[in-house]
């Protein structure tokens, strides 16, 4: 349910970008999703494939997800570490004075779409 809400948001945004750019249809949406963004990729893809049927331009679109590793920085010792292995506590010095550098993003990176000729003549003279 959580994933579906975000998917609807993504589809809405991509649909309007497609309309603005006069695309015929969107073939692919590429997203960057952090490991610790609380999105479950499998559920996200399922939700995407279900909800895309309700859009104007994304009926045939594929979703590519690039998973971004969670990295945390320790303010006490200056080291960084893998967030999913150690969480909030620094494995180097034991400090909790840490913050996430990367890995919580949910970003629409790009979309690949088919564009038609702007002024196609009715007599069918296109090459």
């Amino acid at each position: 349910m959580h994933e579906l809400g975000i998917v609807m948001n993504v589809l809405e945004q991509v649909d309007s970008v497609a309309a603005e750019n006069r695309a015929e249809k969107v073939l692919k949406v590429t997203m960057e999703v952090g490991e610790v963004s609380s999105i479950v990729p499998e559920l996200f893809i399922d939700a995407f494939n279900w909800a895309k049927k309700k859009t104007a331009f994304l009926q045939e679109a594929d979703l590519e997800m690039i998973i971004i590793e969670g990295r945390t920085y320790c303010q006490s010792c200056g080291e960084t570490y893998k967030t999913t292995d150690h969480g909030k506590q620094c494995p180097h010095c034991g400090s909790f004075e840490t913050y996430l550098l990367t890995g919580d993003q949910v970003v629409i990176k790009d979309i690949t779409a088919v564009f038609g000729e702007p002024e196609r003549s009715a007599s069918g003279t296109e090459t």
Binding site: V10, N21, V107, K109, D110, I111, A113
Partner: peptide, 18 residues
Amino acid sequence: MQQVKTILLSKSVFEDND
């Protein structure tokens, strides 16, 4: 003629709401 193009967005899903 049809063309396939990629449009770069690099936009956070939460940006509009924020």
